[in-house]
Design a protein around this nucleic acid. Structure first.
Lengths: 258, 258
DNA sequence: CGAAAACTTGATCCGACTCAACTATCGTGG
DNA sequence: CCACGATAGTTGAGTCGGATCAAGTTTTCG
């Protein structure tokens, strides 16, 4: 499949390009840093859908980056209920412990599991992450990393708002707009058809709803011509309207001209 | 022993001790680092209840530490709904941007507001935080900081689980056990009476419930002799039972012998 | 001591869940 | 290429947890 025909821009370019583009959108990177990134992506690992990347409570190994495919972080309750914390898209980093300090925090354990939702390709956890530990030598990488972190936390806060204070209708609108913006950042323009590999059950586990209710709510969004969703493909027909419904706010984590 | 009579252990010691104890529970600190902490706490600022520490979208200033009193991070929706993300207790750090990288991430804005829930005393945002930016020189401080961060994220994940997949009864049990453990760490033994300055409305805004329902659910917990709650004082009568009800897991973020 | 804030209580309503089919789509092997 | 089972999506009926509305009552504090 690889290219999937209709996909615009750099949906799935050379593995290292997605990571390069993503990180350099957070902070300017030197040529040396760029070459480190390329090197780190050279040995990308392929992982099938439904694989656990790490499990809650396990000591966490090296952090890594998603180059292609989707994954999520989640927790399983004792009685089988599932809660998804966030989604990992191409270009996203994960596996960070407390982060970029010297010795890698011994005894630190993952507070969540991570599972692939589609087939996925992972950056080799090689030199790249040793580098991040030397912020003086690689200031660009270190800053990009920290900014990506901050961004992810902002998304987590969005998620808390959805779960705590929004209706099913608002939650779905909010999440879909958020994903739309994230996909926009990695080359799928907002308002066009973008890949949406999440099943309704996955959406339900993320949004704290039942599958049945996710289904009905999606239909409502379709009926109102706010979204188009078929196969594994989503189009936000009216992003501003969706954002208004959901009280969605772009994370102004950093950069951004004005 | 400063004040307040009935409070056990080091509930409210000299300001710098709480921060010292807290941070050194995360990583061993050198004498030099300790003196930095003391210095930073010397100029503690007093802030009354109900004060905004910072607002969403504002560029964030220096990070700081709570030495006494409670605060919370929250977001306000357009229509007045409120969602509380987490609570800040004595010894907690806040105001972290993306964190401890070199130049302080220009353009980074707070993704949440922070408000004091009681009168509060804040560590002077002086030298302490300049120090954290030089991890090579102050490895203990840097690691403690990162660990505290990781811990806070783990609590945020707990919160997502509560909101997404638990009943009102479970949510309250879960939050109360969590607070119990956090208070235990700062000198209020688990199972004893501890300060609980949160109003039912605050609990409601944290747990995504209505005030009325928080009230009824608290009564159920009292009726079942799981908690005792009066005035601004809470006692977890049966922490294991509460933890079982709530499927509560201690964050094993780091250290801890085993 | 009075007013505001916090907490209770009861009645009613509704958003979302559950249960239980049923249909469509997808991948796979015969 | 089709038959098949499996996975994902759809639909309807009935129920319930928690919201809302509308009084109270108590506590706190100036």
């Amino acid at each position: 499949m690889a290219a999937a025909a209709g996909k615009p821009q750099m949906g799935d370019r050379r593995p290292h390009e997605i990571l390069w583009l993503r990180l350099s959108s957070f902070a300017p990177l030197s040529a040396e840093e760029r070459s480190i990134i390329r090197q780190s992506c050279a040995a990308a690992a392929f992982v099938p859908a439904g694989t656990a990347l790490h499990r809650e409570g396990e000591p966490l190994h090296k952090p890594s980056a998603l180059l292609a495919g989707w994954a999520c972080r989640l927790r399983l309750l004792a009685d089988g209920r599932r809660q998804i914390f966030d989604f990992l898209l191409p270009g996203d980093l994960f596996g960070h412990p407390g982060l970029l300090d010297g010795p890698p925090l011994p005894g630190a354990c993952a507070a969540s599991s991570a599972v692939t939702l589609t087939a996925v390709s992972l950056a080799g956890t090689g030199c790249l992450f040793e580098m991040v530990r030397e912020p003086e030598r690689f200031p660009g990488l270190a800053r990009a990393w920290a900014a990506a972190q901050a961004r992810q936390e902002a998304y987590l806060l969005n998620h808390v708002v959805r779960l705590g204070r929004q209706s099913a209708y608002e939650r779905l609108a909010h999440l879909l707009v958020e994903l739309g913006h994230r996909l926009d950042e990695i080359g799928y323009p907002l308002g066009s058809f973008v890949p949406m590999p999440l099943t309704q059950e996955t959406l339900a586990d993320a949004l704290g709803l039942s599958v049945v209710h996710v289904n009905r709510t999606l239909q409502q969004l379709r009926r109102e011509r706010l979204i188009e969703l078929k196969a594994a493909s989503l189009r936000l027909i009216d992003p501003p309207a969706l954002a208004a419904i959901a009280d969605f706010r772009l994370p102004r984590t950093l950069s951004s001209p004005g």
